[in-house]
Design a protein around this nucleic acid. Structure first.
Length: 260
DNA sequence: GGCACAT
DNA sequence: ATGTGCCAACGCCGG
DNA sequence: CCGGCG
């Protein structure tokens, strides 16, 4: 988990009284957090926020001991905070979507990314859907990445209008899977790879190999606190090469413009 | 979980 | 000594 | 302009 979250502003979901009791989300680092927890101050619409980071194992353990169940990460890193190194596509199933719809949507998104010569990685969210990630060389701003993701969403919803939608309003989705591209804006975040969710069974947002999508038993909650350690010991992290695959979006943006 | 602050 | 509040934020919408 | 909603 640490290589993935390292040097990213984090958002924490904490449940000191158990996941069946009230919890809260926390952006600002706690005043009592020890000074060996790295932090980063970023400008927000209203002033600035100092986020905690988890750059080493003791930091992650401290967060866990603070009843932080789920860690959400920014799409950029401290040394270039305005330039995301990830584009995230969130596949969020609607009430009338099955998980095989989610897998279909993931494959068709991957196919489009392939057409655009963009590398893609997939992970479970540990909740209901899947996340696709495109590693970036940090040549584009949040605005440009978000614009690109939105265009990708438009192409996909035009290709499969009965399966997916980019409609923000639930009432306009008609039960369809929501292609949420809004994670690619400044100040937004997504559940971090290998983070546990505050749900029964402790499901984990787990990086996958693409061929694992063909498993008929796979769901967003297949991987858990219980079974992920052994999985990592065995096969390692399916995303270990993600950084090396980073690309610029320049060509893809040109190609998308031509698709209309 | 832990702190500031009120009672 | 014990209790309570606090620990996010953002676009969109209607009032 | 504000509060509630997603």
């Amino acid at each position: 988990m640490i290589p993935h979250v390292k040097n990213r502003p984090l958002m924490l979901q904490r449940f000191p009284n158990g996941i069946d009791k009230e919890g809260w989300v926390q952006q600002e680092i706690g005043k009592h957090f020890p000074d060996w927890i790295a932090r980063v101050t970023v400008p927000k619409s209203k002033g600035h926020v100092t986020h905690p980071m988890a750059n080493d194992k003791p930091s992650l353990l401290y967060l866990a001991n603070q009843a932080c169940i789920t860690v959400h990460e920014w799409m950029s890193r401290v040394d270039k905070i305005d330039m995301p190194d990830l584009m995230i596509i969130d596949l969020d199933p609607g009430p009338s979507s099955s998980f095989s719809d989610v897998k279909r949507a993931a494959r068709m998104t991957r196919a489009l990314l392939d057409e655009l010569s963009l590398p893609s990685f997939v992970k479970t969210t540990g909740s209901k859907g899947l996340h696709l990630a495109v590693p970036l060389k940090r040549r584009e701003s949040f605005e440009e990445v978000h614009e690109t993701a939105s265009l990708i969403g438009e192409v996909l919803s035009a290709r499969e209008p009965e399966l997916v939608t980019t409609e923000f309003r639930k009432e306009k989705r008609r039960g369809r899977l929501f292609l949420d591209m809004h994670r690619n804006q400044y100040g937004q975040h997504a559940v971090a790879p290998y983070s546990v969710r505050a749900l029964p069974g402790a499901p984990v947002s787990c990086p996958l190999d693409w061929d694992e999508l063909s498993s008929s038993t796979l769901t967003a909650q297949t991987f858990t606190l219980k079974n992920v350690p052994r999985r990592l010991e065995g096969d390692g992290d399916p995303w270990r090469e993600i950084k090396k695959r980073a690309v610029s979006l320049a060509r893809a943006r040109k190609a998308l413009a031509e698709m209309g």
